[in-house]
Design a protein around this nucleic acid. Structure first.
Length: 306
DNA sequence: GTACAGGCAGTAT
DNA sequence: ATACTGCCTGTA
């Protein structure tokens, strides 16, 4: 743990926009992970924030019901982070972001929860996404009392499948409600199966996901990256589009040497595919990690200028 | 009032 | 095949 890139900061990782159902109560963070409630706290005796960046030992991890070593799973501590990040040394912007945000990690989410979460994330704000998911958990999840506080687990695909469209609508997803129903149906019928998707290649898994109503290029890439172990997935949302437009001008040429034109906010599905291929070749099989740092950099440093 | 928020599907070309 | 357009809903 000598390289600054190996520091581990769960707080910044949780707050980097991948995760929607976490919040801080007093000095602890609580989150919903499928049917488990997770919690971590700063170890009081640690010198974190005094003179060094946080490390693994500065935190204590809890869960209910007990989930063995969940922190290793969620924060991907099993990845060789130094090796992965050193693979981006040819890129100045990502390298800068890695130095700027030591301890930022890609998170490994619970797959079903991840799928529903990003279906809800279609064309809306983080605040609204959090509200929808909270409402869905409250209405269709199970109540759990932990640390004397009330939590609700994430609803199962079965429950959401049995729920009526209007019941789901009362949780606030609007037109995304039909997408939630479509996803629940595919999962219950096992037309969409997590273990199967994990075994498939990135491309084939993505094809399957995109057959679901409400899952397009971007949402499929989020699901693949955050829950299906496809670390080459590189979700291109509006922030990443802006980053690519502003800092990666060379991307604007396709293989026929034609200039790809797009205004800085929108890309077409064809452009998405083209840019995705190029950027994955450029960043390699862990492109998703690069995306994570780019995304966070854009939100933190450039966000207020837009 | 209306523009916008971490895209998408349906329809028109 | 590719481009254009409307969309739930709450907030600024």
């Amino acid at each position: 743990m000598t390289d600054s890139s190996s520091f581990f900061n769960p707080e910044i990782s949780i707050n980097s926009g991948q995760m929607f159902q976490w919040h801080k109560i007093n000095d602890s963070w609580y989150g919903v992970y499928g049917d488990h409630i997770l919690k971590f706290s700063f170890r009081k005796s640690s010198s974190y924030s005094e003179c060094h960046s946080p490390e693994y030992g500065d935190f204590e991890f809890y869960s209910y019901p007990e989930l063995e070593k969940w922190e290793s799973r969620l924060f991907r501590l099993d990845d060789d982070i130094e090796k992965i990040l050193s693979g981006f040394s040819h890129d100045a912007l990502v390298s800068e972001a890695i130095r700027e945000y030591p301890g930022l990690r890609l998170l490994r989410q619970e797959p079903h929860q991840c799928m529903f979460s990003f279906v809800c994330a279609n064309n809306t704000s983080i605040t609204m996404i959090r509200r929808m998911l909270s409402n869905l958990s409250r209405k269709f999840g199970s109540k759990v009392i932990y640390d004397g506080k009330e939590f609700f687990t994430f609803p199962t695909a079965n429950t959401l499948h049995r729920a009526t469209l209007s019941e789901i609508c009362t949780c606030g997803p609007g037109y995304r409600s039909t997408s939630i129903k479509a996803l629940a149906k595919s999962l219950v019928r096992e037309e969409l199966d997590v273990k199967h998707l994990m075994r498939l290649s990135y491309e084939h898994a993505k094809e399957h996901l995109m057959e679901i109503h409400g899952i397009g290029n971007k949402i499929a890439d989020c699901i693949l990256l955050f829950s299906l172990e496809k670390l080459e997935a590189f979700p291109i949302d509006i922030w990443i589009t802006r980053a690519l437009f502003n800092y990666y001008g060379w991307l604007n040429q396709n293989k026929d040497n034609e200039t790809i034109r797009y205004n800085r906010d929108k890309i077409t599905p064809k452009q998405y595919t083209q840019i995705s291929e190029t950027i994955r070749r450029y960043f390699g099989k862990y492109a998703g990690y690069a995306q994570q740092f780019l995304f966070y950099h854009m939100r933190e440093e450039v966000g207020r200028e837009w």
